[in-house]
């Protein structure tokens, strides 16, 4: 039969010679490979003293953005939740009342918005789905914890602080948003 690639090898069960039975040449061969690696450049870094530069498209902890006037962009449309392959997002919507126009941009807003960071696979599909440019993944790392419920991030940890905005412009300058 013709092989698909030329990498396939015939297998045989011939008897080992005396030299092969000693195993020593094979052991030395292996040791040489190990020793070579001692002088190679390290692939690891000494975290946290040293830190890697994140790619502009790094996908870490989410942020719910506000617009220039400080109003929440998210309108609880549920598209992020339906796009999420890990089913990590849940939300409860509510109607904006008179006098709350400075808080929420749209007539409807998310009263509860939760992401379970243990379920999230940081794929960024929620960001892709969002029609309101409300949710973005950032270069922040989700903190470790030893308590499962603490990984469910509510609006208190997701919505950005009005006075301490989170910059996502680097993400917006890459990929498909750049072309627009």
């Amino acid at each position: 039969m013709q092989s698909l690639t030329n990498r396939s090898k015939m297998v045989s069960d011939k008897k080992m010679t005396f030299l092969e039975k000693l195993y020593l040449p094979a052991i030395f061969g292996g040791m040489i490979i190990t020793a070579k690696h001692l002088f190679r450049k390290n692939n690891t870094i000494k975290y946290p003293e040293e830190q890697r530069v994140f790619a502009p498209v790094y996908r870490g902890q989410h942020v719910l953005k506000r617009d220039e006037q400080g109003r929440e962009n998210c309108t609880a449309c549920g598209l992020c939740a339906v796009a999420c392959p890990a089913e990590a997002i849940t939300m409860v919507a509510n109607e904006r009342k008179k006098g709350e126009e400075h808080l929420y941009r749209e007539e409807k807003y998310a009263e509860v918005y939760e992401i379970n960071m243990l379920r999230c696979i940081f794929c960024g599909l929620c960001e892709e789905a969002c029609p309101k440019e409300a949710i973005f993944l950032t270069d922040r790392i989700v903190k470790t914890d030893d308590n499962r419920p603490d990984f469910v991030y509510g609006k208190d940890r997701l919505v950005e602080d009005v006075n301490n905005r989170i910059d996502v412009s680097r993400r917006q300058l890459t990929g498909k948003r750049k072309e627009k």
Binding site: A76, G78, A81, A93
Partner: peptide, 9 residues
């Protein structure tokens, strides 16, 4: 049923 949920949920 206003704003209670989205139909697909």
């Amino acid at each position: 049923a206003r704003f209670k949920s989205r139909v697909w949920f």
